[in-house]
Design a protein around this nucleic acid. Structure first.
Length: 833
RNA sequence: GCCCCCAUAGCCCAAUUGGCAGAGGCGGAAGACUUAAAAUCUUUUCAGUGUCGGUUCGAGUCCGACUGGGGGUACCA
């Protein structure tokens, strides 16, 4: 075993079989009495081999998992695959193979890479979301949601890819309005789809973010809050001439109610159709044209805020609830059908969009707020300037509100509306319900049956006891997107006969969004082979929630929001006793090349497999950990894997050179080196818990350097302090470089595995300094550094400072105003004049 | 447009949370070893913290304004 030089290949081959035989990271079901930590990395999607992004995220997750083991915790650190989804299906279409084949062969490749990379996973808990044993519980979850009214079907406008002929999720539509896959301009199409009622949970999803403050990245919390988009204001009811029902609109500015001069309805809202129905033919035609035209509009055109306002008059008038005036009702696509009530009251004087519209169509503009400029000067009339007065001010032209400030008027206005029964206080969220159905093959079948014949139009859930509804084989199915799910064509699969009535029912042909799969997988890891339930609530009580989640910020909104939602639903159902799934979260940065994102087309790919092969797992992991703060992007041009390998070799040689025996009494060792070791033992836990992995590596380098110096200097290889340091280095290094650390541990005469070694407590007596170095400042500049006994009092320090000749020189003939003593750091002398 | 983050040496990054700006690495230079090179080892080099102002005995750190860079989001009423 005693090699003379460090060779990562030899070491990897030596230890991998040992670990695989011992399975040190398998969590046993028996209680141990130790505290628990659930450390989770976002599970990978199996598209090809692992890449550098995986290497980074799993490196950080593994540092934390290994760290908590050294601290005496039982650590659950599982791995699985998010293995349903479009890429498998696209590959299947392109190459004519089964999506299963593509998926599971990629998983095997990733498993093999992980094996060498050696994260400390519990490999007995592996799950794949595309296994029937997993998605069976997706279906269970769906049915539970359905029972509670949280899963429902509705007609609505969805994103439609006119090339691939499929519905797209919002996240599959790029910012420029094109499909991320086909590149085609996405259009809107009205379809019946399944939704999860996440909007019911909007307030809780927002409020509970406060609990995560300081534990999740502020950026993610901000993005979540933004996405939920709570707005407070009022609902105002408008009567429409010749229309029975009052029309509610939402506004955040009830203070400007007296300035409302027209109404606007979203052209694609049902309300617009209803209102125009009774109008004359010319109006109906104009509206139909307008609707068709705005439907054709691509997202990019529609989202361009600078574009000219367009719209058509609906031939109707509403009655202003306060003034009683007739105000015209228009349809315009700057109003969104699915926000608020799909209709607004327009206050052109105080809203830029309304003003633009009013100016375009020559509608009245009434100013109701006296808004002043920064200097208190009068601002130009919006009708002339074209600039709406959106700031704060004093109400005018508003009987009952005149003279009030904006905030006062908001409250007063709501009160008035409520008294008159023409409105009320209201809250609206930007968050929409979650569209979960997909017209695709490679996903979880939706466990619903649709009636035929006399049951036409009826739906019934699949009996829980018959789950899973397994996906039929893909052979014989045309997986190409056609606009309807390929499963509908699997006639034999889709047709179900009711054993009692003999009636024919058809399976819902859609599959679930893969975000459903990933919204609860962390629960399945708790009891992954349980065939009686989705997860064991007792295990959830023991391990949950996830203590540490690690993954990319690209999931800051959707995956995390959906997971938080499902967790709250499971809480409401009584399966778990917590409402937030992930207590702490770390988002790793990206791995870049020369400041740019790596991509095949740019040809600047740093391949994980290549790096692993040429430098080994340890050097790669140390490089990623050392490159900088984990949240920051890493530019591969700035790092040196060779440098990391050099450090590992240096550390390894320290252990090799130790000549004392295991178990030697450390207290007789060199005091200087021992101090360094114990300072390190005391400092590193804080650093790891603060995610300062780069600093920990730097400290380890420093410790290796001082130990090397001690060995080569007067201390020598046999000094117990050298062994103590080498053992500490091996133990701490095991978080970053498990192979090298294990080899060091073995050279130091210990049994495998160092991963289960416990963190030695730092000896407090070695941490106290008996001398302190106190800087003396005069007028903010350091003039002397005093060496004082640690027991020195403030008065001693002040006296010593004033006695210093260089301090006296600095003071000169100036008068001393104040002397501030902050031991053990500094004495600060403030002078006058 | 709105919201958030960042700015320290040629480069990547530290700085006990308001107390002497430097821990570590990369790169550069010199030297040792070598026939030579690589590898290895030793020594060494380098900024006053983006700009302006404020608070303070004292500011990289706190506050304000600005500049530059990055990210998120946007007819959301």
């Amino acid at each position: 075993m005693q090699n003379e030089t460090y060779d990562f290949r030899v070491i990897q081959e030596r230890w991998l079989p040992v670990w695989e035989a011992k399975e040190p990271f398998v969590v046993k079901p028996e209680p141990t009495g130790r505290p628990t930590k659930y450390i989770l990395d976002m599970f990978p999607y199996p598209s090809g081999d692992l890449h550098m992004g995986h290497a980074e995220a799993f490196c950080f997750g593994d540092i934390l998992a290994r760290y908590w083991r050294t601290q005496g915790y039982d650590v659950l650190h599982p791995i699985g695959w998010d293995s349903f989804g479009l890429p498998a299906e696209n590959a299947a279409i392109k190459r004519g193979v089964d999506p299963r084949e593509w998926t599971y062969s990629n998983i095997d490749q990733q498993k093999a890479s992980f094996r060498t990379y050696a994260p400390s996973f519990d490999w007995t808990r592996v799950l794949h979301t595309s296994d029937p044993e997993y998605y069976r519980w997706n279906q269970w979850l769906f049915l539970k949601m359905y029972e509670r009214g949280l899963a429902y079907r509705k007609d609505s406008w969805v994103n439609w890819d006119p090339v691939d002929l499929t519905v797209l999720a919002n996240e599959q539509v790029l910012a420029d309005g094109t499909s991320e896959r086909s590149g085609a301009m996405v259009v809107k199409k009205k379809l019946t789809q399944w939704y999860f009622r996440i909007t019911d949970y909007a307030e809780r999803l927002l409020a509970d973010l406060d609990q995560l403050e300081g534990r999740w990245p502020a950026k993610v919390l901000g993005m979540q809050r933004n996405w939920i988009g709570k707005s407070e204001g009022a609902e105002v009811f408008f009567e429409i001439e010749g229309h029975d029902e009052k029309i509610p609109v939402f506004t955040t500015r009830p203070d400007t109610l007296w300035g409302a001069t027209f109404m606007v309805v979203a052209p694609d809202a049902d309300l617009a159709q209803e209102l125009v129905a009774g109008a004359d033919e010319a109006t109906r035609e104009a509206f139909a044209d307008y609707l068709a035209q705005s439907q054709k509009q691509s997202e990019i055109e529609r989202q361009n805020a600078d574009r000219e306002k367009t719209g058509v008059f609906l031939g109707r008038y509403a009655t202003h609830p306060l003034t009683g005036e007739r105000i015209p009702v228009w349809a315009a696509d700057y109003v969104l059908a699915d926000y608020g009530h799909g209709a607004i009251m327009a206050v052109p004087a105080h809203d830029q969009r309304d003003l633009d519209f009013a100016l375009a169509f020559d509608l009245p503009i009434v100013q109701v707020l006296d808004v002043r400029g920064e200097e208190g000067e009068e601002l130009p009339n919006p009708a002339e300037s074209g600039i709406a007065l959106t700031g704060d001010g004093v109400l005018v032209n508003s009987p009952g509100l005149d003279g009030l400030t904006k905030a006062e008027a908001v409250a007063e206005s709501i009160k008035t509306l409520e008294e008159r029964g023409t409105g009320k206080q209201a809250i609206t969220y930007r968050l929409r319900d979650w569209l979960i159905s997909r017209q695709r093959y490679w996903g979880t079948p939706i466990p619903i049956l649709h009636g035929t014949g006399e049951h036409e139009g009826e739906m019934k859930p699949v009996d829980q006891s018959t789950l899973p509804v397994e996906l039929p084989a893909s052979a014989g199915l045309d997986l190409k997107p056609k606009g309807s799910s390929p499963l509908g064509a699997a006639t034999e699969w889709a047709t179900v006969e009711d054993p009692e009535t003999g009636a024919t029912w058809l399976r819902d042909p859609d599959t679930m969004d893969t975000f459903v799969d990933s919204s609860w997988y962390y629960f399945r890891f708790l009891s992954p082979t349980d065939s009686t339930q989705a997860f064991d609530p007792a295990e959830a009580k023991k391990w949950g929630p996830v203590d540490q989640y690690v993954g990319g910020v690209e999931h800051a909104i959707l995956h995390l929001l959906y997971s938080r939602f499902i967790t709250k639903v499971l809480f409401d159902m009584g399966y778990i006793d917590f409402e937030e799934p992930f207590l702490d979260m770390l988002n790793q940065g990206m791995v870049l090349q020369d400041g740019a994102k790596m991509s095949k087309s740019k040809g600047n790919l740093v391949e994980f497999a290549e790096q692993l092969e040429s430098h080994g797992a340890d050097a790669l992991r140390v490089t990623l950990a050392f490159a900088g703060p984990p949240e920051d992007d890493i530019d591969w041009a700035d790092v040196s894997v060779q440098g990391s390998a050099k450090f590992l070799a240096r550390a390894w040689r320290v252990a090799r050179d130790v000549t004392s025996e295991p178990g030697v009494d450390f207290t007789t060792g060199d005091a200087e080196l021992r101090k360094a070791t114990h300072h390190l033992l005391a400092e590193v836990p804080k650093l790891v818990e603060d995610y300062k992995f780069n600093v920990v590596v730097a400290r380890l380098m420093e410790q290796v350097n001082v130990t090397r110096k001690a060995i080569d200097g007067s201390v020598g290889t046999a000094d117990p302090a050298v062994r103590e340091s080498a053992e500490a280095i091996a133990m701490m290094l095991s978080l970053f470089a498990p192979y090298a650390a294990e080899d060091m541990w073995a050279m130091l005469g210990h049994e495998a595995t160092v991963a289960l070694a416990q963190w030695p407590a730092a000896d407090e007596s070695l941490l106290v300094e008996n001398e302190i170095k106190v800087a003396v400042q005069v007028g903010g500049k350091v003039r002397d550094v005093l060496v004082l006994p640690a027991t020195a009092s403030d008065a001693d320090a002040e006296a010593a400072a004033l006695a210093s000749t260089s301090v006296q020189r600095a003071i000169g003939d100036k008068e001393i105003a104040r002397v501030i003593v902050r031991l053990p750091k500094i004495v600060s002398i403030a002078t006058k004049g």
